[in-house]
Amino acid sequence: MDQHERRGLWLMAAPFVLGVTVLVVMPAVGSFAMAVYEWDLVRPPRFVGLDNLRELLDDPVFRISLRNSLLYAAVAVPLRLLCALGLALLLYGHSRLHAAGRVAVLVPTVIPDVVYALVWLWILNPIYGPLNLVLGAAGLPTPSWLSQPGPARWAVVLMGVFQLGEAFLIVVAVRRLVPEELQEIAAMSGAGRWGRLVRVTLPIMAPALLLVAMRDTIVSLQSTFLPALIVTAGGPPPYATTYLPLFAYRNGFEYLRYGYASATTVVMLVLTASILWLLYRAFGRWSRRAWERA
């Protein structure tokens, strides 16, 4: 490749690089720098060093938010992955029915987030919402979705699970890349449908599934924001569905403590990175070996 071509390519990438620098890198660095200040964006900032971090660790609401976020990720990520995998295995074919099924699965994901949240606010209404009306008609218990901590948390998980379109699409694409010849060979050596799935299909998909799990973890730690803001308002008391993003938002934009909110963000980033590292350590080697064996 000659200089001319390389320069042309860099020029093409330039707008994106500029965009990332100005819209992601600079604000991120600025936000993290703000974590050591007490700043309300009105008066000049006041340097407080590690005070924000110390206050965070003492803050019971922060601890609850952290626990809620971790619990959510621990429940929602495997659930979403399992559902995405299950749906992909059912719907990866090329028939019209499968295509229709795929579009249906995508619908909750492509709906604008605020519409999604408002619709769920209506669905989860304990007395007038369709969910409890249907459950009641079927003789099943009708939990008070928004006024009890347990059901409220499950409601947020439910909202998250339905929006698995991104993971679903990736898993479908990966499933289609599994070579049919390997499946046929396994079939000929006597493996049944289940055997083929476990010994051929899944191991080949393993590395990609790990990537999806990692991406999903990142998403899960942030995606609770709008549901918690619009549907549950962080409640029911005490803070049952207050997650880290909502906690940061409230402290920043409602109480004008942007430094404190930034400190929360730093913790969130460290948390995300740690979880990703743990996931990779735990499953990375396993998935690679599974793939090689298949």
Partner: peptide, 8 residues
């Protein structure tokens, strides 16, 4: 009740 207040 809680539920009723939540609903309306």
């Amino acid at each position: 009740s809680d539920e009723e207040a939540e609903a309306e």
